[in-house]
Design a protein around this nucleic acid. Structure first.
Lengths: 136, 136
DNA sequence: TATTAATTCTACCTTTCAGTAGTAATTAGT
DNA sequence: ACTAATTACTACTGAAAGGTAGAATTAATA
């Protein structure tokens, strides 16, 4: 019941980039500052480039840039790239899908917490969390 | 961001047993009714026996029984057996632990949803969900 | 006591996630 | 044109989760 390593790395990286919008970062710098394995980071960044959340500049003096305003990027946008987060109809007990017609035993208790998590991931943008906290 | 298969199976099995307290079930029956691989189910049940949530009766005419009243078994009790659920201080971004002294960028947004999930898993017992829903 | 139906134990296989290695492609600067 | 610095691609390795196989153990019943 937690985010995958990949999602955590992605959120941390984009958040860090959002707090330093002006400067263009490259993979080596990000890897060092955030203590994320270099090769793993570049793999993740490539995925983020493909879905147009990040722009990559190849070659010498290259690096990465956010492709949208940080307030335009919600955490949910990042999580869906890696099939993480919580899907609307996904049953918490893993029995197919839960709808109002047919639900699992735990469905009613799960509705409220699920809603709150989903809302949090949808409403929270990089702008909201950039620069917050004392850990990177 | 979801429960492990093991946790899901465990909750479903114990919930089913709670709704049929009178009768003693064996692994073959549970496996068929709940559509859980037999060998996997028995492995899970053995773990639940070890932590005293379930009583096993070995040999012919054997099977499994809940060892406590269903209202005495919270979902949290089951999840902790398989190291699932949400730990109190575990950082959602995976950067060590989050405390009031030093927290991650997402900490503040995460507090409320986390609290609600934890409460749900602590307060919901097998008695609450036994017989609910239309899926087993 | 022998049989049979059940749980338990040990070991293995398979799939997915996490992480690594090497090379190709791209581009700025000289 | 060449070099150095950078991202992208392909393929591999290691660890954990999910799942399977077979034999050992237990106990009721005939």
């Amino acid at each position: 019941m937690q985010l995958s390593n990949t999602s955590q790395y992605a959120i941390r990286t984009l958040t860090y980039m959002a707090t330093h919008k002006e400067v263009q970062m490259n993979a080596t710098q990000l890897s060092r500052v955030l203590d994320i394995p270099y090769k793993f980071l570049t793999k993740i960044m490539t995925d983020l480039v493909k879905v147009d959340l990040v722009e990559s500049i190849r070659g010498r003096e290259g690096g990465y840039l956010l492709k949208k305003q940080s307030r335009e990027i919600a955490l949910r946008d990042i999580l869906t790239v890696f099939h993480d987060g919580i899907e609307q109809e996904q049953c918490i007990l893993g029995i197919g899908v839960c709808s109002s017609l047919c639900k699992c035993a735990l469905h009613d208790q799960w509705v409220a917490p699920k809603q709150q998590i989903q809302q949090m991931f949808e409403q929270t943008t990089l702008a909201d969390i950039a620069g917050q906290g004392c850990k990177i």
